[in-house]
Design a protein around this nucleic acid. Sequence first.
DNA 1: ATGGCTGTATTATGGCACTGATGCACCCCA
DNA 2: TGGGGTGCATCAGTGCCATAATACAGCCAT
Lengths: 120, 120
Amino acid sequence: MALMHPMSAHPNRPVYLKLRDQIAAAIIDGVYPEGAMLPSVRALAAEQGANPLTVAKAYQQFQNDGLVEVQRGVGMYVVRGAAERLRAAEREVFLREEWPEIRSRMARLGLDPADLVIIS
Amino acid sequence: MALMHPMSAHPNRPVYLKLRDQIAAAIIDGVYPEGAMLPSVRALAAEQGANPLTVAKAYQQFQNDGLVEVQRGVGMYVVRGAAERLRAAEREVFLREEWPEIRSRMARLGLDPADLVIIS
DNA sequence: ATGGCTGTATTATGGCACTGATGCACCCCA
DNA sequence: TGGGGTGCATCAGTGCCATAATACAGCCAT
């Protein structure tokens, strides 16, 4: 039988959002440490097979949030405390918006988080 | 600070997908018991403030999966065993595709499912 | 100072998903 | 045999996304 939730998240999630999530994860994980320079829009675009403008759109949100600092003509740098602020913000959103839905969904499916902790 | 995941889960989730999830939940929960007729596309559209076609698109997937039976000119009916098949299928997808991502995401955020079981 | 790297602004274009309005085919019941 | 209820097909419109081609402004090492 065909699956029912081919995409509970989003199948056709916009590229610039995927990039944003990926970069955010990299910052939190320390792949791009504080003070380090992010890959240039052109470099990351080439690496990811995307358009430089699309990468710029992903970067845009980070400077809006003050997580990266732009030095025109030089590059974009991860500000101090960015990783922690990012993680705190994500955690906040996760607990408030995502986790309740996940819980009720699991309940409906007859699953219990306690049981799944062991598995993975 | 602006949040990071304005739509990590579903901000702009298409209406027809929201409806599909909602209907699937209703079937699993027995709101629409086996053998019962689903609300007509027009009725549900009016109730949800959506377009009849959008509702039809949501229903479409259920007939593709053989979970509902169509009687032209009459209505759509929930087939026998639909709830259980639906729940099994959803559970399969959840465990295989969603849960791993949730786990790694929680790990990145410094969260542990075991701790959150108590909260909610 | 010049070439090469940064990010950024502008404009245009194609594609695709979502939504909407209308009309048709079908079935049941009075 | 009508009338009102089904689902369904077609066509059109709208908006977002992604791409593209340029061009500009700033910085730096050679």
